[in-house]
């Protein structure tokens, strides 16, 4: 029996606060309910790297928990818009903390729900390679990079993403343990989201910035998938734990927009106050959304011993979905 413990999480939100009026298509942005619900979001600075922000978080974790960095066996990262496209951010972070991790993964898939996928990866390495502690890093960098360029910021959907980074310190202690991890791939949806550089490849010289896009005809399909996939994964995790969804103390999902958030809590019969998010102030944090909401509520003392916290969400246009349950406190 392996304990997968979320011991601590530190977050870094870039200082650059962007309000809604930064973005274009005002009529669309203010009238279309798909683009409502945010007040502000953060944008990563042009010269910042994901590993810079991971380093800030990791350093705080090391200090908070009085860690010997040489004990960190494993680093896993997901960066939404990567800056170390060849070498990966994990190796850089390992260097910055003067670490000695044996196993480093920079995963590029599972987007908005990569936190759960990376937790599962750590659990596997605990079982197979005797990993005892790991850093799980989510860095959402697409807002300031992809959606803040002079041309891309004119799109109404540019107001939806926001940047932020989290690093979770994972150990094998019998505390805040993650169980009933459910992961599922949906291959049919794998090509429904793409990088759009106006016909050019992203590595080619061009005159327009790139954007992350999906075809308009797919938008209702994606809504339908999101509406069904996330509740399905939550129900699967609850069935595995032999509990009802209403026994979930707190639900934390990815946060694409308020309509998805409403639909997921309706589908799981949970009241708004038990579905935690940071959408209004940080917007859609992609993969960093779940761990940042979790971290904020850990610091606030929201969770009590014995609480069951469900993490869940879907990636991209619905090519992957996941859920898991955390038994809060010592167990």
């Amino acid at each position: 029996m392996i304990n997968l413990c979320i011991k601590d999480i530190e977050v870094y939100l870039p200082e650059n606060v962007i309000t809604n009026d930064f973005f274009g298509e005002e009529l669309l942005r203010t009238k279309n309910k798909m683009f409502l619900g945010t007040k502000e979001r953060r944008h990563i600075g042009r010269d910042d790297k994901a590993s810079d922000h991971m380093h800030i978080c990791a350093q705080r974790l090391i200090e908070n928990n009085n860690l010997n960095v040489k004990d960190i066996d494993m680093i896993v990262t997901n960066v939404s818009c990567p800056d170390e496209v060849f070498t990966g951010s994990g190796a850089v972070l390992n260097k910055r903390i003067n670490g000695n991790a044996r196993h480093i993964f920079d995963i590029h898939n599972t987007g908005c729900v990569s936190f759960i996928y990376m937790l599962d990866l750590v659990k596997t390495y605990m079982m197979v390679h005797n990993v005892k502690s790991a850093l799980v890093c989510n860095s959402q960098t697409a807002a300031g990079r992809v959606f803040a360029q002079p041309d891309t910021r004119q799109l109404a959907q540019a107001c939806i993403p926001g940047d932020g980074t989290s690093v979770a310190y994972i150990t094998n202690e019998p505390l805040n343990t993650v169980n009933h991890i459910k992961l599922e791939n949906f291959p049919d949806s794998a090509e429904d989201m793409y990088v759009n550089c106006g016909g050019a490849k992203y590595w080619e010289a061009r005159t327009t910035s790139g954007s992350i896009d999906f075809t308009e005809e797919k938008s209702s399909t994606i809504m339908t998938r999101g509406n069904s996939l996330v509740p399905k994964m939550i129900y699967d995790a609850c069935a595995s734990a032999k509990i009802k969804t209403t026994q979930i103390s707190y639900l934390i999902t990815n946060q694409p927009n308020p309509i998805f958030l409403r639909n997921w809590r309706e589908a799981t019969l949970l009241p708004p106050e038990r579905h935690l998010d940071t959408f209004e102030k940080y917007a859609n944090l992609f993969g960093a959304g779940i761990p940042i909401t979790l971290a904020e509520n850990m610091k606030k003392g929201t969770f009590k011993n014995g609480d069951i916290i469900c993490l869940a969400g879907f990636a991209h246009a619905g090519d992957f979905a996941a859920a898991c349950l955390i038994s809060w406190g010592a167990n």
Partner: peptide
């Protein structure tokens, strides 16, 4: 339309 479209 999206707002009127619920999961359940």
């Amino acid at each position: 339309v999206a707002d009127l479209t619920h999961a359940v």
